[in-house]
Design a protein around this nucleic acid. Structure first.
Length: 830
RNA sequence: GCGGGUGUAGCCAAAUUGGUAAAGGCGCACGGCUUAGAACCGUGUGGGGAAACCCUUGGAGGUUCGAGUCCUCCCAUCCGCACCA
């Protein structure tokens, strides 16, 4: 049925441009490097790469020195999980797949800088990943702490908060969550395998990304990124401003001995204006536990309740996915009165202190002041336990009477029942009340520190050494920089152990080492670092991949960085894209670079789906790009992908339409063989240059291709000269680099079309000589006529009124109004 | 619940930013070429109606001489976050 097409029509010239300045300045065109996880590149990768390459190719033709590197993100859990699945050692697998990946990457015709490749599992690379860790430790940004962390029962490792995703695959669960039910603490799926994660208390390494929360938030304003990604980051950082308020316990709390050890409770609230309405205090079970630990003698039932809550927050570890009930454990609000009272600092009222399961330990202070009238959760809780509900914010103030609430009122209003503050608008009262009671203003973030340890094999060993008390007792020491890299030892059994320890812990020769400080016997850290650390800095390395003295040279960084355009998937909005911004700011603060945002411009491409569903192996709807490239050639495949729909929106991969593109390119080849005539209508040419230039700039590749099709049809029909065909080929070059190059040479050109100058247009020549003027009566199209472009309003009006059809329809009536839009329309209002 | 996106022919989509709705492609129909088919080329292709015309951008209102585009309220769908005080 289809003709045999050569795989690559012509040999392409790749030029990384590193040594040949072209005058317009540098342009770092980056695309997210692929995970080395499956048999080969996914058609979705191809989609992203082609879209990014078209942009880069145009920039190159415009005269920029374009640096478009590629590499492989092959270290870490994604590659390792694939290795586990097929039962091959990840190191051997990487060597194998690497070749295949690069071959595939070559076949799609991107203008990559082939000499500057990098692989994250190359010791020459991960040496510097480890170096970053060491610097982090030295600068106090890497630390160890015991905490309740996310644990994936299937991957058998801890995960950062960002790597726990909202449950996507279970519609029933989603629906119930949407109706306001909650997941409880620690609910969510592992980013890699989709298993529900659980909470475990473990000591782990963290990076202090929270130190950068404010800057990560504020600097979003100065970067040109896809808006949805910026919003996702903003939400994730989750800044909220409020007050820290202390509730005194220093009075007689009978028989409980609480005030001897705990003198006050501190709460965080964004609504200090509602302080007079605080009718109880609720503390998290974790905080209550710490009270118990410090000697609080709680009633037996309270102690039991605390124990239960803490247990409920851990989801039992099974091979099965937890049931809905398990996943949402703790959603029903429960609590118990502690017997303790606290003093409301606003009105000196004695209010009860409860332990409640709905108070989170990890946010704020782990305790809240409960204002049932103005917080839905407190309202629900107060109703259940018969606690007082006191209205202090009134939405219709002067009337003074607020009706009984059947739900919490969370909006703004004027204060009532708040003593001297009655009548004050709530916004103003926030500050005033905080001031009066001497509360500290505090900013809280949802963002937590980045958990960097992984109990896995395939990653850079964390370059730390522990010198324990029996011998030197120097504590944690970084591996000296000259000893880097800490090579990942070859082990036979790389399976995760599930014992909170990496498989490296079993390699005694690796673990046993000397303390770099005292020289005594010491043990290595056996966890590896998170794969997102590998990818958080790779674009710094590209311009200087061979550097053996430093992670990247000043010259390379100065020449190419920061990245001018970054294209990748939106699924990394709060993962990779957040970590890279953090690392860049850290590098900036260390004086390594003079910018503090890595990507000037970021655009998220859409998702390529198949038959309305996400492509996945289990569904069996994965498209293999190689088959298409083999069958149709890279150019047809590239253009077809880009023609599916708007690049930033993605589309459904149905191959019915590919024939249209194949036909188009066959016609292009015929065009180059055409007999030449004189140059004719320039309008379509200039218009096309304008449209296609603008469309590529805005990543509207689908419409740029449509314009190429129209231009081709026009060129086929008219007498045209070689110059016009050459312009066409230049416009085509970013989309179909092979064919454009081949035809370009057939027309006698020696240099590559990809180094040719991008065509320019004359604005005045984009307009045609005549325009069709639409004549409307009362906004409805009744007739039309041709008029010279630029014809004056008066003349257009006269012409329209003279049209026989219009005359008849008006029937002698006097128009109430006539609106004339130049070169466009005349609207007669009767 | 909060935040963001999307909704246009049979399908993918376009619309100079408030000015002829449906460009371009797929598919389909008819015609040409051909012994025949494939490929290729040409023409047509939202719905109703014999026609004049009327209707049509998820739904209902509104602003305007004029609305796919702006405003209000719904509906559907996708994505991100979520007991964050």
């Amino acid at each position: 049925m289809q003709k045999k097409r050569p795989k690559t029509e012509e040999k392409l010239i790749y030029e990384p441009d590193l040594d040949s300045p072209r005058g317009k300045g540098k342009f770092y065109n980056l695309m997210m490097f692929p995970y080395l996880s499956a048999e080969g590149l996914h058609v979705g990768n191809m989609y992203a790469f082609v879209g990014a390459d078209i942009y880069g190719r145009k920039k190159r033709m415009e005269g920029f020195d374009v640096f478009e590197p590629i590499g492989l993100d092959g270290f870490g859990i994604h590659s390792e999980n694939y290795a586990l699945k097929i039962g091959k050692h990840p190191k051997k697998l990487a060597a194998l797949t690497q070749k295949h990946f690069y071959k595939q990457l070559e076949s799609i015709g991107n203008g990559f800088a082939w000499d500057e490749r990098l692989e994250t599992y190359d010791p020459a690379y991960y040496r510097w990943t480890q170096w970053i860790f060491v610097q982090m430790f030295k600068k106090g940004l890497a630390y160890r702490k015991k905490a309740k962390v996310n644990w994936c029962p299937k991957c058998l490792t801890v995960l950062a908060d960002e790597q726990v995703l909202a449950p996507a695959r279970r519609p029933a669960l989603r629906r119930r969550l949407r109706q306001g039910e909650s997941l409880g603490e620690g609910g969510g799926e592992c980013e890699r395998c989709g298993t529900m994660v659980i909470k475990k208390e473990l000591e782990q390494w963290f990076f202090k990304i929270t130190d950068y929360a404010e800057r990560l938030l504020n600097d979003l304003e100065k970067i040109d990124w896809s808006e949805n990604v910026k919003i996702a980051q903003k939400n994730w950082i989750g800044r909220s401003e409020g007050a820290l308020i202390s509730f005194d316990l220093k009075f007689k709390n009978e028989n409980l001995k609480i005030s001897e050890t705990i003198k006050f409770i501190e709460v965080f609230t964004t609504r200090p204006d509602t302080l007079f309405g605080a009718t109880y205090i609720a503390i998290s079970p974790e905080l209550a536990k710490s009270w118990l630990d410090s000697g609080w003698q709680a009633p037996a039932d309270v102690g039991a309740f605390i124990g239960e809550c803490l247990k409920a927050r851990e989801v039992p570890q099974t091979d099965e996915e937890p049931s809905f009930a398990e996943a949402t454990a703790g959603k029903e609000k429960t609590g118990i009165f502690t017997g303790v009272y606290a003093l409301n600092p606003a009105n000196q009222e004695k209010i009860p202190v409860w332990v409640a399961n709905y108070v989170l330990a990890g946010y704020g202070t782990g305790a809240i002041m409960a204002v049932p009238a103005h917080d839905r959760r407190d309202f629900e809780f107060a109703k259940k336990y018969g606690l007082p509900i006191k209205i202090v914010i009134c939405p219709h103030y002067p009337e003074k009477t607020c009706p009984m609430l059947d739900a919490a009122y969370e909006g703004e209003g004027h204060l009532v029942g708040s003593g001297e503050f009655d009548g004050v608008p709530s916004e103003e009262a926030k500050r005033k009340i905080a001031e009066k009671i001497g509360a500290t203003i505090k900013v809280n973030y949802h963002l937590r520190d980045w958990l960097i340890s992984r109990q896995r094999y395939w990653g850079p060993p964390i370059p730390m050494i522990f010198c324990g008390p029996p011998v030197g007792g120097c504590g944690w020491q970084p591996v000296p920089e000259e000893d880097l890299p800490v090579l990942l030892p070859d082990v036979k059994d790389f399976h995760p152990t599930g014992t909170d320890q990496s498989p490296l812990a079993t390699v005694e020769s690796f673990v046993k080492t000397k303390c770099p400080k005292c020289g005594g016997e010491a043990r290595r850290e056996t966890d590896v670092s998170d794969t997102f650390l590998d990818s958080a800095w790779y674009f710094f390395r590209y311009p200087d991949v061979k550097n053996k003295k430093e992670p990247f040279g000043k010259l390379g960084a100065k020449t190419w960085l920061p990245v001018d355009m970054y294209i990748g998937g939106a699924e990394h909005a709060v993962l990779h894209l957040l970590y890279t911004r953090f690392i860049t700011k850290v590098f900036h603060d260390w004086g390594l670079v003079d910018f503090d945002e890595p990507f000037k411009k970021f655009r998220a491409h859409g998702l390529l789906i198949k038959d309305g569903a996400k492509m996945s192996k289990s569904k069996g709807n994965v498209v293999n790009p190689d088959d298409y490239i083999k069958k149709y050639g890279a150019d047809v495949f590239r253009m077809y992908l880009m023609f599916l729909g708007p690049f930033e929106q993605g589309g459904d991969f149905r191959d019915e339409g590919i024939a249209g593109i194949a036909r188009f390119l066959e016609r292009v080849k015929k065009l180059a063989k055409k007999e030449w005539g004189a140059s004719a209508d320039e309008t379509i040419l200039h218009r096309s240059v304008k449209k296609i230039s603008d469309d590529i700039e805005g990543l509207h590749y689908n419409t740029a291709i449509a314009q190429l099709m129209m231009l081709l049809s026009a060129l086929e029909k008219m007498e045209c000269d070689r110059a016009s065909v050459k312009v066409f080929l230049k416009l085509l070059a970013p989309f179909a680099p092979f064919i454009a190059e081949g035809l370009w040479h057939k027309l006698g050109e020696k240099e590559s079309v990809h180094r040719a100058e991008w065509p320019t247009y004359d604005e005045s020549k984009t307009r045609s000589a005549t325009a069709t003027i639409v004549v409307q009566i009362n906004g409805k199209v009744r007739d039309r006529f041709e008029a010279e472009t630029g014809t004056g309003d008066v003349e257009l009006k006269a012409k329209a009124l003279e049209l026989p059809k219009i005359k008849k329809l008006i029937g002698g009536k006097a128009p109430a109004n006539i609106i004339v839009i130049k070169d466009r329309l005349v609207n007669i209002v009767l």
